[in-house]
Design a protein around this nucleic acid. Structure first.
Length: 624
RNA sequence: GGGGCUGUAGCUCAGCCGGAUAGAGCGACGGUUUCCUAAACCGUAGGUCGUGGGUUCGAGUCCCGCCAGCCCCGCCA
């Protein structure tokens, strides 16, 4: 409905100019045009849209709000074509203008979406092409585990939220660089390499000689020796120097450790169907000296206690710690790496990505770090005027006791274990239900459904919450079959698939969001024939129509605000509206003149759910 | 000590540019199945939007103070 919203807004703007020419011209001259404050209606009984501008303009124009509203409505109604778009506007309360779109127009929108694999969402790529300019890539920096360590619950939110944001941006037509900024460089490699050289020297001379097996245990052993053995410690320190000096044997050992970790991470990414390009901290290593030199040249660098720092501009009298870019021992640290990354990502190729939007999905605890680093980058002139640099923070994962999520024994929860448990619980639940309903299904079906539902539940539970707040993790809640959960949404889709099997044409589009491509285009002649004369009469049909048409606006919102929970709410509400329709309005048993229109609604609902869930990284099921 | 985030129904949470009577879900209580998967639907009860000021025609939303919880705070990431 974004196109209708824009059309109405344009019409309101014209009406404002006609009704109040002097004030409109004056406002225009000031650079702040009069605003009709058009937005979606706050309640269904108010229609489709409401314009609140009359209230705000009352003081400025020195008139009663209702008088302003009346004048506006008069001009609106007099304009050519308005009555084809909209019912007579209603003035309500102190001066709200309520607008209801004509049923024929809504039905036409539904018909057009049935033929549109993008479901009404415009493509940024096509838009920029039409305007004859290029579209800069967007970078989403997410997941970012550390080499030689395990992925744990702390990586869950970044990985899931980052993937979903990337999918939405990809669907909108952007080229998205999904960067995995893995921790693959730093002093811990001294001890790891030293340990490797001592316990598995053959790995360094023979190709693929050794499978390191449990890397976590390996890391623990190395750490334990580092902490207890002084000789080991000094060897490890020398090893760091060798590695940074480019010693071939040290590099080989380093590669080996990275490759091993990469394989383990990849298993989880495959399982979650998440794609990432690894570009770890080591990538920026050769660029660090230039970062410091650049800061020096721009006069931002200050030596303080032997360390090279940039002091932050403070908005008030509060004293912020400086950003240290070079330690007193000459080494660089994480702030330097982050600065090098920002510089590279905005810079022109070949020594840069030429991005214009860079998004960091990390926990909220790093907010002040990023605020500092972003400020330094800005003052250093590395961010173009049209460049956006955004930290997308999220809260902690907590247990049901409200404390940081831990296992019973107090350890960090491994991501693998967490996913396993979700799938196991989902399987147990499914088996219990099959027994209760005396259904018999193949083992393959059970595994497939349990896996899909379990992983969907984990993803959806995370995404459906506003990411800023801490997130209380609960298997029971996320796997619940009712409420705002993945199983509830998946079930709505299963119901539609059931209608399709029993004779209704559902012809749902393919797994759109998963590929960033909306899938098969349909035979438009066939569709036009089938759904050309849509007509709706029941309130449940209209509620569904109106909700379906809101999809494009939600995608636009997620693209801008980077809040996937908005998409989740939309899909949940869509499922609710659909279930009401399904419960109260027959589809297959409807009289022929209503049947096709209802089938069309079923299909568009399925398409929308499937696409929407795909953008959350959640695949769907035909039966469950 | 400084900074950030959070505080909305018993619980978990939404609440978009400030807009009409603050919304869901769970839980509780009551109802609905010869009919497309009842994993659903319908209804009832439940609120000092932490608190005190301010701005505004209008504040859960913006500004200031206070209280509480969590997180961060110079050479780890």
């Amino acid at each position: 409905m974004l196109s209708i919203l824009h059309e109405l807004n344009d019409r309101l703007k014209v009406a404002l100019g006609q009704a109040f020419p002097a004030a409109a011209a004056a406002a225009e001259a000031e650079g702040s045009a009069l605003d009709a404050q058009l937005g979606p209606a706050s309640k269904p009984e108010f229609g489709d849209f409401q314009a609140n501008g009359a209230l705000a303009l009352a003081k400025r124009l020195g008139m009663q709000p209702r008088v302003i509203a009346t004048a506006l409505v008069e001009k609106l109604e007099a304009a050519a074509g308005f009555s084809d778009l909209c019912e007579r506007p209603q003035i309500a309360g102190p001066g709200f203008i309520n607008l209801t779109i004509k049923p024929e127009r809504l039905a036409a929108e539904v018909a057009s979406r049935l033929q549109d694999p993008r479901l009404g969402v415009s493509s940024a790529a096509e838009e920029s092409e039409a305007q004859g300019r290029g579209l800069a890539p967007v970078i989403v920096d997410f997941s970012s585990p550390n080499i030689a360590k395990e992925m744990h619950v702390g990586h869950l939110r970044s990985t899931i939220i980052g993937d979903s944001l990337a999918r939405v941006l990809e669907f909108r037509g952007y080229q998205v660089l999904r960067l995995n900024h893995v921790g693959d460089w730093g002093t811990q490699f001294g001890m790891l390499i030293t340990h490797l050289k001592q316990v598995a020297p053959e790995a360094l001379s023979t190709a693929d000689a050794v499978d390191l097996g449990d890397l976590v245990a390996f890391y623990r052993q190395a750490k334990q020796r580092f902490d207890s053995d002084e000789a080991f410690q000094s060897t490890a320190r020398e090893e760091v120097v060798r590695l940074q000096g480019g010693d071939p044997v040290s590099l080989k050992a380093w590669h080996l450790l990275c490759a091993q970790s990469r394989r383990e991470f990849q298993q989880l990414y495959d399982r979650l169907d998440i794609s990432l390009n690894e570009r770890g901290e080591s990538f920026y290593n050769p660029l660090l000296a230039a970062v410091v030199a650049d800061l020096e040249a721009s006069g931002l660098l200050v030596s303080d206690g032997g360390a090279q720092c940039v002091f932050l501009e403070e908005s008030s009298a509060h004293k912020l710690p400086p950003v240290i870019v070079q330690k007193s021992d000459g080494g660089f640290n994480y702030a330097t790496t982050d600065l090098a990354a920002i510089r590279y990502r905005f810079a022109a190729p070949p020594a840069g990505d030429a991005a214009r939007r860079v998004i960091y999905v990390t926990d909220a605890g790093q907010a002040s770090h990023f605020a500092g680093v972003f400020q330094v980058a800005r003052r250093a002139g590395w961010i173009p005027a049209d460049g956006r640099l955004e930290h997308v923070p999220f809260g902690l994962v907590q247990g049901e006791d409200g404390k940081k999520l831990k296992t019973r024994s107090g350890d960090t929860v491994r991501l693998k274990d967490l996913l396993d448990e979700a799938v196991e619980r989902s399987e147990a639940d499914l088996r219990r239900r099959l027994q209760e309903e005396q259904r018999s299904e193949s083992e393959e079906f059970i595994q497939q459904v349990a896996n899909t539902v379990g992983l969907a539940a984990v993803k959806y539970a995370d995404l459906s919450q506003n990411r800023i707040t801490n997130y209380q993790f609960s298997f029971a809640r996320m796997l619940a079959l009712q409420g705002n959960t993945a199983p509830y949404l998946l079930y709505a889709l299963v119901r539609i698939a059931g209608i399709a099997r029993k004779g209704g044409d559902a012809g749902v589009i393919g797994d759109a969001g998963n590929t960033g491509d909306a899938g098969n285009t349909r035979d438009s002649n066939q569709i036009t024939g089938l759904f050309s004369k849509l007509q709706f009469h029941e309130p449940q049909e209209w509620a569904l129509v109106r909700h379906l048409l809101g999809f494009d606006a939600v995608i636009a919102e997620v693209e801008e605000e980077l809040l996937p929970n908005r998409l989740c709410s939309y899909l949940f509400e869509l499922s609710q509206v659909f279930n009401r329709f399904y419960d109260q309005v027959p589809v297959l048993k409807a009289p022929p003149e209503a049947r096709n229109s209802r089938l069309a609604l079923c299909r568009l609902t399925a398409d929308t759910l499937k696409l929407g869930l795909g953008l959350l990284g959640i695949p769907t099921l035909e039966r469950m």
